[in-house]
């Protein structure tokens, strides 16, 4: 569904993303992991059209979308969410979701009805008439998801939707994401919360210093020496091995 090939982006002398490639199959949940500053969010901004890559291509549903503006990409059915949640503070929760729904439903009554239905599906039925600014962090993360779904997007790029949530909230969102996937959506997610990655993602990519260093199932990845070293420092994998044997 999504094919990213040799994506590269430099800021001045810094190679933020260097020759990164990845694939997301339709109906899958794919993780994108990596330590802080590895270039994950830069990858997202390029895939979703917010910044232009220096090199490389992004293909979505067989069409080349490299360098297209975000609203064109969103119309085609791919949408990103933000790590720092960005509700429209002056609007109610339902109106927030409706902004997403307006993309394919031009009539207000219709967009609001779609918003209500999606809000309810994500367990936000009681909050629909509240101002979005009154939501808790967990509520805002759900709203971010609801708004993205309301655009009718097929592929959702989630940037750390679990960050800042307590474990019980994490398992709620995990349940919601699984439910949305079963309804026919595809996910590419940046995530640090391992509980979520391990239970959701079928495959994952690991980015470090802008380069893809590993690809596999989450279980394989946690045992990959390269991945362990990316997180814990040079030589850490060997020391861990010794620890096991001793």
């Amino acid at each position: 569904m999504l094919e990213v090939r040799n994506l590269s982006k430099s800021f001045g002398g810094l190679k933020a993303v260097d020759n990164a490639s990845l694939d997301v199959p339709e109906g899958g949940i794919v993780g994108l992991l990596g330590p802080n500053g590895a270039g994950k969010t830069t990858c997202f901004t390029m895939i979703a059209g917010f910044t232009k890559p220096n090199k490389g291509t992004v293909r979505f549903m067989g069409r080349d979308v490299t360098g297209l503006p975000p609203h064109r990409i969103c119309e085609m059915g791919m949408i990103r969410t933000f790590q720092i949640v960005q509700p429209f503070a002056g609007l109610t929760v339902q109106e927030n979701i409706a902004v997403g729904a307006y993309l394919h439903h031009h009539d207000r009554a219709e967009a609001m009805a779609v918003a209500r239905q999606i809000g309810k599906r994500l367990g936000m039925g009681a909050m629909l008439d509240r101002p979005a600014s009154s939501l808790t962090i967990a509520g805002r993360k759900r709203l971010e998801l609801a708004r993205a779904l309301a655009t009718g997007a097929k592929l959702l790029l989630l940037d750390e939707v679990m960050a800042g949530l307590i474990p019980s909230e994490v398992s709620e969102i995990v349940g919601i994401i699984r439910q949305i996937r079963d309804e026919g959506h595809t996910f590419l997610m940046i995530e640090h919360v391992m509980q979520a990655v391990m239970s959701l993602a079928e495959t994952a990519y690991v980015l470090n210093h802008g380069k893809m260093i590993a690809h596999g199932t989450p279980r394989e990845l946690v045992q990959d020496p390269g991945v362990v070293e990316a997180y814990l420092g040079h030589g850490a994998a060997a020391r861990l091995q010794e620890g096991h044997h001793a």
Partner: peptide
């Protein structure tokens, strides 16, 4: 209103 409140989020929503 979406543009006023948050232009980046608005862009992402198409």
């Amino acid at each position: 209103i979406a543009v006023r409140e948050n232009e980046d989020a608005a862009r992402a929503l198409g």
